[in-house]
């Protein structure tokens, strides 16, 4: 069995499930979870490809991505918490300022 195909399949499904989170769930934290899933899917594919080719750049990139994702999770979650602290709901129903 070709492990490459398998990994790509897993990566793809994880990406799509993360996308489903983004599109279908209303809560912001759920959307952040979805984003994390998508990033991980990408990372999985990246690392697998890097190992197969023996390419160190891929591994380095995956590491940097993990770091950036950490920063992003911090800021995103903190924004959600701030909104919750102000007494409003962190759901997309009420976040309508981009409409029009």
């Amino acid at each position: 069995m070709d492990s490459g195909l398998l990994v790509w399949g897993v990566s793809g499904v994880l990406f799509l499930v993360g996308g489903a989170f983004l599109v279908l769930r209303r809560q912001l934290i759920a959307m952040i979870i979805g984003v994390e899933l998508m990033i991980n899917a990408a990372n999985l594919a990246l690392v697998h490809a890097a190992v197969r080719r023996g390419d160190a750049e891929g591994l380095a990139a995956a590491l940097l991505i993990i770091a950036a994702a950490a920063a992003e999770a911090v800021v995103g979650l903190w924004l959600v918490l701030r909104r919750l602290r102000d007494g409003e709901t962190a759901e997309t129903d009420s976040l309508r300022e981009l409409s029009g």
Binding site: V23, T92, S99, G100
Partner: peptide, 14 residues
């Protein structure tokens, strides 16, 4: 396409 729900925006981006 631009009604305001973030979910829909993401969907259209996809």
């Amino acid at each position: 396409v631009c009604r305001g729900r973030l979910n829909e925006y993401v969907w259209w981006m996809f």
